[in-house]
Simulated assay, not measured.
Amino acid sequence: MASGAVDEYVFIPLVNDVNYEYNEQTLTLSKNRSPINIKILGNKHITKITENKNKENKNKVDINNILVLTGYAIDENSLGLVHTLDPCDYVKGILINGEIKQLAQGLSKQEIIFSKAEVMNKLYFMRKSKVDLQNDIKINLITDLITQPNPVRKTNYRSLKIDNKKKIEGITDLYDIHNDDAINNLVEKLNDIVNYYSI
């Protein structure tokens, strides 16, 4: 059980056909239903996306600590995570310093608290880089609210295909990436490294 101060984080899944918008310290995910609103609490994001300042790699971005949640698939309509218990299922996304302010109907919040000493050991990160955590962390997952037992169905493998960079404008604004070439590079890299299972 965690004691003392706890920093709050939200797992933001990276999936197809979602609009990510950022305005007035709020990241909004919208698709077919009511939007999901995440209030940003600070810039202590565990997932890092930065413009590369190196001359040779100018207009490129560096991405570190993309979180892979195993044993989960995502409902692509509701954007809620479904716990399948299958270790082959996974969803990839970013871990940001924030709290869930609004969820669409049918979604709920699952909270998991990690000791600051175990975050980098217990969680599976792609492109792992060191994170200096001052406190234990609470991760909020957006999950499907199952009011009665539903059978876990077949999952489907998906590759991320960002066909319009405006869709991820909220992510580029959140990480202060405004150079057009750098945004194009981010789209290219996310399309290359992000895939997931849907249900």
Score class of each variant (00 low, 15 high):
1 M>P: 08
14 L>Q: 04
19 N>W: 08
23 N>Y: 11
23 N>P: 00
25 Q>E: 11
33 R>T: 14
34 S>A: 13
34 S>M: 05
35 P>C: 04
36 I>T: 07
37 N>S: 15
39 K>L: 14
40 I>C: 04
44 K>Q: 12
47 T>M: 13
48 K>I: 13
51 E>Y: 05
52 N>I: 04
54 N>P: 01
55 K>M: 10
62 D>C: 11
62 D>T: 14
63 I>K: 10
67 L>Q: 01
70 T>F: 14
71 G>D: 09
75 D>I: 02
77 N>C: 03
78 S>R: 02
81 L>D: 05
81 L>S: 04
81 L>P: 00
84 T>W: 15
85 L>V: 15
87 P>G: 03
87 P>E: 06
87 P>C: 02
89 D>C: 11
90 Y>Q: 07
91 V>I: 03
91 V>N: 01
92 K>C: 06
92 K>H: 08
96 I>G: 01
98 G>P: 06
99 E>I: 09
99 E>H: 01
102 Q>N: 09
103 L>P: 06
104 A>F: 00
104 A>H: 05
104 A>I: 04
105 Q>H: 10
105 Q>L: 02
108 S>P: 04
109 K>A: 12
110 Q>E: 15
117 A>F: 11
117 A>K: 15
119 V>C: 01
120 M>T: 08
120 M>L: 10
122 K>A: 11
123 L>K: 05
126 M>Y: 06
129 S>C: 12
129 S>E: 14
130 K>A: 12
130 K>N: 10
134 Q>F: 10
135 N>C: 03
138 K>V: 08
139 I>P: 00
143 T>E: 15
148 Q>R: 14
149 P>Y: 09
149 P>N: 10
151 P>F: 06
158 R>Q: 10
159 S>F: 08
160 L>A: 00
163 D>T: 13
164 N>E: 10
166 K>M: 08
167 K>Q: 07
168 I>K: 13
170 G>H: 10
173 D>F: 08
174 L>K: 01
177 I>H: 12
180 D>V: 11
184 N>P: 06
186 L>K: 06
190 L>D: 01
190 L>S: 05
191 N>S: 02
193 I>W: 03
194 V>E: 00
197 Y>S: 07
